[in-house]
């Protein structure tokens, strides 16, 4: 366990010391940097619970070799909004009943933010396709789709208000 490297996480340089080379980014974020929001549920990129942004791209952190993620900005759910001051997407998930056990939720939150940043007014089918890599076992997805749609409408209304 002799890897030393620096990751750029949520705008902060974070040193990783004495790591094992085979550690994935999810493990390093959680166990070495104390960022527990991203969750591990499949270790194969088949559930999306560990989603983070690396270099601006939504990826499964369990499939990123941590030591290879040097030099690129990494954003986790902790970097989206400060504790107690949820983002619009986060608040909408709570308000719409999109959260039950909550294990898939951080991954969905970051995926939904990414979707709405790229596609501000997604159709229902776009939401379904873009979030199809995030498996939820509790909700049946209906309230999650509702939450994303609610944010899209609220942002459009806010933009219209700002423009007038």
């Amino acid at each position: 366990m002799s890897e030393h490297y620096t990751l750029h996480v949520n705008g902060v340089e974070r040193a990783v010391q004495d790591a094992w080379v085979g550690e994935n980014l999810l493990y390093v974020l959680r166990e070495r940097l104390g960022l527990m929001a991203a969750k591990g549920a499949c270790e194969q990129g088949e559930c999306g619970s560990c989603s983070v942004l690396v270099g601006g791209n939504l990826v499964c952190s369990c499939l990123v070799l941590a030591a290879s993620a040097v030099g690129e900005p990494i954003v986790t759910v902790e970097g989206l909004a400060p504790p107690g001051a949820p983002s619009d997407v986060q608040q909408a998930f709570v308000d719409c009943g999109a959260v039950q056990c909550g294990f898939c939720t951080p991954g969905l939150i970051i995926a939904a933010h990414d979707l709405l940043d790229r596609t501000p007014e997604p159709t229902e089918m776009q939401i379904r396709e873009e979030l199809s890599g995030n498996v939820c076992r509790c909700t049946g997805y209906g309230r999650i789709i509702e939450a994303v749609q609610q944010v899209a409408v609220a942002r459009r209304t806010a933009d219209a208000g700002a423009a007038s």
Binding site: G45, E46, G48, S51, N57, L58, V59, C60, L63, V64, A111, E129, E130, L131, S132, G133, N134
Partner: peptide, 9 residues
Amino acid sequence: VGSPQIRNA
């Protein structure tokens, strides 16, 4: 291919 996350990587 996989999910959007997989296609990004």
